[in-house]
Design a protein around this nucleic acid. Structure first.
Length: 491
DNA sequence: TCTGGGGTCCTCACCCTC
DNA sequence: TCTGGAGGGTGAGGACCC
């Protein structure tokens, strides 16, 4: 077991919301809620100001708005968060080659492996310096936990939040953990927490007292053994710099449940294409195709099919997904569809056999499906979806100005020609005005869009309102949070 | 106005082979 | 030839994480 507290866990504070506050000076010190803005959107991150109203991650956005009616609700801007995250991860890699990112805003670092810390004192010094460097590079605060293991370092950073640093001295682990809730331990979520609570176990100390056998009996072998060890403060998992992806998937929740079988088939095909696109981008192929269907009552079904060999052929994935869909009863309505690929390989063995099978199957299916599919008259409730609100980019899609991010290509080959659509301006998205310069959308409706003209580092800016089709207003890329070059002057 | 998206890991059931 | 168990592959679902 490692003695020196040289595992560092970094956690950026309320990351998405903090990035939004840094890039939008008028929001600093205000309640900011980042998440899906559609009717089925949920909160991704809330600023600490919004958390005071009871808003938290995974809460339905509608509920968050009720709790915090004056909060600024914004769509996530992942490209910006990724850019900021890259800066932070680069700083971590200066400390050690062993950096294990967990998400855009969290990572473990093995300081000892990087030679940047060997005892409590040097670890503390490194942690403080890192926090200062992150603040200088991004303008954001981060919390740091230091301990002898990953689990304890994560507990420490959680305790240090917000904007703090905590080191757990070797030998103090059990006493520190004992009074904490079992929910503190990674892997104990609502279900396991409730399971343990019913057995009278609510603290980590009680978990340790329960003993290994009892825990294995209660929650299964792997989980029970892991929980018992963690309750004792034991965790010898190494920091792993490179992790191979094991699956790739895409899914969409629709604003309105889908009933029309033809429409559902179409969505599955579209998702299969998106999934293959992502699969290819990652340089993978995969062998098992998974279809996910969440029904009107929130029950979730998965159906999967394993191919003879890995593929990244869109036709093969589309066909497999279509076959899987045929085995699912969708009467009652579908709120979410997803297509995924697992069993990834890092080679693309061009599977001629599978391809020829797929081509045959496709030809057969096309011959069968075309009359019914194109006719679209089969489903008596087909008109139910004609609202058009349930489209891609509904609650989840960052349906920014210029149209939904997905389905850029003509999505409705057989549909009526689309009239010039009113431009949509999502709250929080970046824009540039020919006269007033860079700003962000504060809100839009009834043919108007309200823009606040400010940028990272500027004082809070002024608000102006335009027609949604104002030709001088256009979507733009986010500006960097720190060290922003003067726009238009690249010398 | 209930409940996103993209993942990982584990368990269990079933089938097949040895 | 029959039977039972072990073990791997597959499919489905649940829990959890950020």
């Amino acid at each position: 077991m490692r003695a020196a507290p040289t595992i560092l866990h970094l956690d950026m504070d309320a990351f998405y919301a903090s990035v939004e506050q840094a890039s939008k000076p008028s929001l600093r010190g205000k309640a900011v809620i980042v998440g899906g803005l559609g009717p089925r959107g949920v909160v991704a991150t809330a600023s600490y100001e919004a958390r005071r109203f009871g808003v938290h991650s995974a809460m339905p956005m509608a509920q968050a708005r009720r709790l915090c009616p004056n909060g600024a609700c914004l769509i996530p801007r992942f490209s910006l968060y990724r850019a900021v995250s890259d800066l932070v991860m680069a700083l971590l890699r200066e400390l050690s080659p062993l950096v294990e990112p967990l998400s855009l805003d969290e990572a473990f670092v093995d300081l000892e492996a990087g030679g940047t810390a060997f005892d409590a004192e040097s670890a503390l010094e490194t942690g403080q310096r890192l926090r200062a460097d992150i603040l200088a590079a991004t303008g954001l605060s981060a919390s740091v936990g230091l301990a002898g293991s990953k689990m304890l370092a994560k507990v420490a950073s959680e305790e240090a939040k917000p904007d703090g640093l905590l080191l757990i001295e070797p030998g103090t682990e059990r006493a520190l953990l004992a009074p904490m809730s079992v929910r503190t331990l990674p892997g104990v979520g609502p279900a396991t927490g409730e399971h343990l609570r019913r057995a009278g176990i609510t603290t980590v100390g009680e978990l340790a007292e329960a003993g290994e056998d009892e825990l294995v009996r209660m929650v299964g072998r792997a989980h029970g053994l892991g929980l018992y060890r963690m309750a004792l403060g034991l965790d010898d998992r190494p920091v792993v710099a490179e992790r191979d992806a094991k699956s790739v998937s895409v899914e969409d929740t629709f604003d309105v449940d889908l009933h029309d079988r033809v429409r559902i088939r179409g969505e599955v095909q579209r998702l299969a294409d998106r999934c293959v696109h992502r699969l290819r981008e990652s340089g993978h192929s995969g062998r098992t195709i998974v279809l996910k269907v969440r029904r009107y009552d929130f029950s979730t079904l998965t159906r999967s099919e394993t191919l003879r060999g890995p593929t990244d052929d869109p036709a093969v994935v589309r066909e497999a997904a279509a076959r899987l869909l045929e085995a699912v009863d969708t009467t009652g309505g579908v709120r979410l569809l997803g297509v995924g690929v697992t069993g990834l390989a890092d080679y693309t063995q061009e599977d001629l056999f599978a391809q020829s099978m797929a081509a045959e199957a496709a030809a057969g299916a096309a011959a069968e499906a075309a009359p019914a599919g194109e006719g679209g008259a089969a489903e008596p409730d087909g008109a139910a979806e004609a609202t058009g609100t349930a489209g891609p980019g509904g609650s989840a899609g960052p349906a920014g100005p210029g149209g939904p991010a997905e389905a850029p290509e003509g999505a409705e080959p057989g549909g009526e020609p689309e009239p010039a659509r009113e431009r949509r301006w999502a709250a929080g998205s970046d824009v540039r005005h020919a006269v007033y310069g860079p700003g962000w959308v504060q809100g839009s409706g009834v043919g108007r869009v309200t823009v606040r003209f400010e940028r990272p580092g500027s004082p809070p800016g002024r608000v102006r309102t335009f027609r949604v089709d104002d030709p001088e207003l256009e979507p733009s890329d986010p500006l960097p949070l720190v060290g922003e070059p003067v726009p238009g002057q690249h010398t």
